[in-house]
């Protein structure tokens, strides 16, 4: 079982993106689970969620304390201690950012770090600053935890072709700034 934690802000589509990953896992014969963590709901406030993917049934229904993978939809959240807390040594971080990676304050224990300007891609491809589907393209490539073709198909079905294009552009345009994928 791999445990992922996603951090974003209200309105970035974190929950819907995670649902698509679970749906894809289930449809490809694997196991997936997502629990959104709701704080005070308002646009722009920090939100996070817990995603698990496995070849076996997933039993625990708890929060994720030591993620294998961190997905950060807004790079300003890297400044919050809770965002990177507990990342496993050698774990993977995928960040939506247009900034220089050296200035992001990335967790030192990360083994693999990928950076992609998902918001910029979303604005270009879908005309809205919603980076979730672009981040899914990056997630599929960097982690290999979900069937990429099936995920892209689900993105197109759920959100339309422009979002598939955003996912593909992020997949191909992301930068691995630490480790390998």
């Amino acid at each position: 079982m791999q445990e992922l934690r996603l951090h974003g802000r209200g309105g970035q589509g974190l929950v819907k993106a995670s649902h698509l990953v679970v749906k894809t896992a289930v449809e490809t014969g694997r196991y997936g689970q997502f629990i959104p963590f709701f704080g005070v709901e308002r646009k722009g406030s920090p939100v996070f969620g817990f995603l698990r993917l496995s070849g076996e049934p997933i039993r625990r229904k708890t929060q994720v304390y030591e993620p294998d993978v961190l997905v950060v939809l807004d790079d300003s959240l890297l400044a919050l201690p809770a965002t990177c807390a507990g990342l496993k040594p050698g774990g993977t971080v995928i960040v939506n950012s247009a900034r220089e990676p050296g200035s992001l304050g990335l967790p030192p224990q990360a083994g693999t770090v990928a950076v992609v300007d998902a918001t910029g891609i979303a604005i270009a491809e879908i005309g809205r600053a919603i980076p979730n589907t672009a981040m899914l393209g990056a997630l599929a490539r960097v982690t290999g935890l979900v069937d990429e073709a099936a995920l892209l198909e689900n993105i197109a079905l759920e959100f339309g072709e422009a979002n598939r294009a955003a996912a593909l552009r992020a997949r191909d345009g992301l930068r691995i700034v630490k480790g390998g994928a």
Partner: peptide
């Protein structure tokens, strides 16, 4: 069933 931990949990 548990609010949020089941009501909002998605699985197969």
């Amino acid at each position: 069933y548990d609010g949020f931990y089941s009501s909002h949990l998605m699985e197969g």
